[in-house]
Amino acid sequence: MHTFGDPTVWLPFVFAALMGVSILIYVVLDGFDLGVGVLFPFAEADEKDRMIASIGPFWDANETWLVLAIGLMLVAFPAAHGTILTALYLPVTIMLIGLILRGVAFEFRAKAPAPQKRTWNNAFFAGSLMTSLSQGFMLGMYVMGLEWSWINAGFGLLTAVFLTVGYSFIGATWVIHKTDEHLQRKAVDWAKGGIWGLILGIGAISLATPFVSTRIFDKWFSWPEAAYLAPLPILSGLIVVWLWSMLRQMPFANDKWSWLPFVAATALWIMAFGGMAYSFYPYVVPEQLTIYEAASAPESLFIILMGTCIVLPTILGYTVLAYTIFRGKATELRYD
């Protein structure tokens, strides 16, 4: 085990990276299907069916990335897991109830008697909204250091709205890719509205983070770090401008490039996330607990890592398989 250097140093780092990647995959993948739920009230009944069909085969696996992220935190950084989740008890509960509602509404709306379908549609929307809002709130609270105060909660409310709009944006880009004709044009409009949530959200967090902690401030605004980091905001800005001009011309002839907005949105997500990870490293509980202090025993981490090296590529492999099988425009969702 010591052949790769000191395991109490590299193991926590590897696990922090794995956890980060799972969270990132989660916010992109469940982000789009939560977003589709948030957009529900804007769609007509038959459009709702198509929107559901576009996420039907995927949402379960998408949510599993959340289970993995939380599982990795649970196993690799048990102390942090307890601290963070007890501090966020209320939003976590709201999120869980939201996830329950939307997950089951998915099945019930297709199986319950027709008059009840409306109710389950509403439950799907409400659940998606609760989940997105509470995740955004938790993000804001985390950035502010997990202390409950009026200012922090206020900031949390702000990020709650921004993240929700951001999810609806990535959801809209998914709908652009998976549908055509009228609904697709509608989704382009949704995306044009939603992109603001993303911009404001990234902006608010980028502005707030350095001022919460001088440590983070120094990380960003001292020379030469600032020069290395400059491409991150500049590139993000360019992508936003490009996305905007592209959305204004969509849909393109023959439905070319319908997947581009989704890919660009994902790129934005990755950069925003990278910036945050850079700010908070090496802390897992902001300014309180580093990943090295919070890590489990190296023997246990090593056991998990061995499995991960084999299993993770397999998971990625069959995830790709599923997305390939269900590629193309969403048709009716049929159970056979």
């Binding site: 039907g56 085969p57 379960d60 696996a61 995830t319 269900f326």
Partner: peptide, 15 residues
């Protein structure tokens, strides 16, 4: 969990 979740989609909608 991943095994179930991914192949469930194919089992239900892939026939």
């Amino acid at each position: 969990f991943f095994l179930e979740a991914v192949f469930l989609g194919i089992m239900l909608f892939g026939f």
